[in-house]
Design a protein around this nucleic acid. Structure first.
Lengths: 217, 217
DNA sequence: CCAAAAGTGTTTTTGCTACACCCATGG
DNA sequence: CCATGGGTGTAGCAAAAACACTTTTGG
């Protein structure tokens, strides 16, 4: 019995210039030549899906050391015109200060796109991004996922801004701080942010490095 | 490049004798001969994962027409000792009055097991069941998934009992009815259940046949 | 007429929302 | 000394939780 081929596509989120961005690469092969797409490739026969996602992302963009989450299979029969390929879609999140991206010769270009302003895309990749975007919005409200978007140390105002950017709505400063501090997921570093702010702001850091489930909003 | 083989395993839930049950089949081949396992098989090259799940379930147990949901990939390298097989696990739910199960000659036996009292199982199937059980508990609180466990017509007390069995905790009768009726997901059939109850109880039925997302608890 | 489950409202508690002023620093 | 974002508490309201008695039928 012949089996579909297994691949993975990775949606990489990051916040840059006060916008939620997604990492896309430009294809240099048919059938979608010159179109933008998600970084993706085949899963090796002795490879975990999540390892494949890490590897592919590193190969395409030299990015490593990030939060990555597996879920949701995309398997429509016509998603790839050349072969029957089932894709296990992943979501990755890059901390705000991980910067350098550069691609290899498998692609012609790599760039960050605003989630609200995506180009025409190859395959069903637009659908995959929309799915993960909805999930991201939902998941930051009941887990510490938002902290993966932050640098090592951050102020509460910066964290609040991340929520406002992702959720596209304003939050009340006092209520936000109350709930967040009550959840015991961040701790004061006793360090202060002194540049770019009139009054020094307390810098916090995540208590746990792995994902925890707590109501934050 | 060689690719892992794609398969699917299906966790089938049902409520029988006031217990939450899972459907298992007994294998008649190595490497797990005589052990219990989830119904599962390979996905065809031109087959949707969810169609494969339906087909496999029908082949193994002659069960059809049920709620089925795809999610979560199980892909540890050592989950199958003979080959590298990645499994897309599904959850299926059978209405209380779908009864007949019988297997084919691919397996030696088929039976319902209490979720709280599972036998030693082949592969990583125990892990798969535990995952879906947690998800089931969570999902019935914010969707109409619970209605998939009910027969065509049911009383509110019966529905409450299903919640109590799955969640393993008692609920307040008045609060339960208030929230449930306010969610507008069931309607009175003006029919009455008269057998086995002292006072005739109103029979309700689901308004929508597909899954809706509403807070029920 | 008694046993057994059906059915029904109100009060209390809790958590969420809305809201405005003083503080510390750099220029 | 002024502009700028940092930091803090309380009151009102809506949703959730706790709670007990009357009704209908079969035996």
């Amino acid at each position: 019995m012949e089996s579909p081929i297994l691949a993975t596509d990775v949606v990489v989120f990051n916040i840059r210039k006060w916008k939620l961005k997604v990492l896309l690469i430009k294809m240099n092969k048919e059938p979608f030549i010159w179109q933008w797409a998600l970084p993706g490739w085949f899963i090796g026969i002795n490879e975990l899906c999540i390892d494949a996602a890490h590897r592919i992302l590193f190969e395409a963009s030299s990015v490593s050391d990030l939060y990555i989450e597996q879920l949701k299979v995309f398997d429509s029969l016509d998603r790839d015109p050349k072969a029957r390929i089932v894709s296990i879609a992943h979501m990755a999140i890059i901390k705000k200060d991980d910067l350098s991206i550069k691609t290899n010769d498998r692609y012609t270009d790599i760039a960050w796109f605003d989630v609200e302003d995506l180009p025409i895309m190859a395959y069903d990749h637009l659908e995959i991004i929309k799915y993960w975007y909805e999930r991201l919005k939902w998941k930051i409200t009941y887990s510490t996922l938002s902290l993966s978007l932050m640098p090592e140390k951050f102020t509460l105002t910066e964290l609040q801004k991340v929520f406002e950017i992702v959720l596209k709505k304003d939050l009340d400063k006092r209520n936000f701080r109350k709930k967040l501090l009550k959840a015991w997921v961040v701790q004061d570093t006793w360090d202060k942010k002194t540049i770019w702010v009139p009054r020094p702001a307390a810098l916090y850091t995540a208590i746990h490095s792995d994902l925890e489930f707590v109501d934050l909003l």
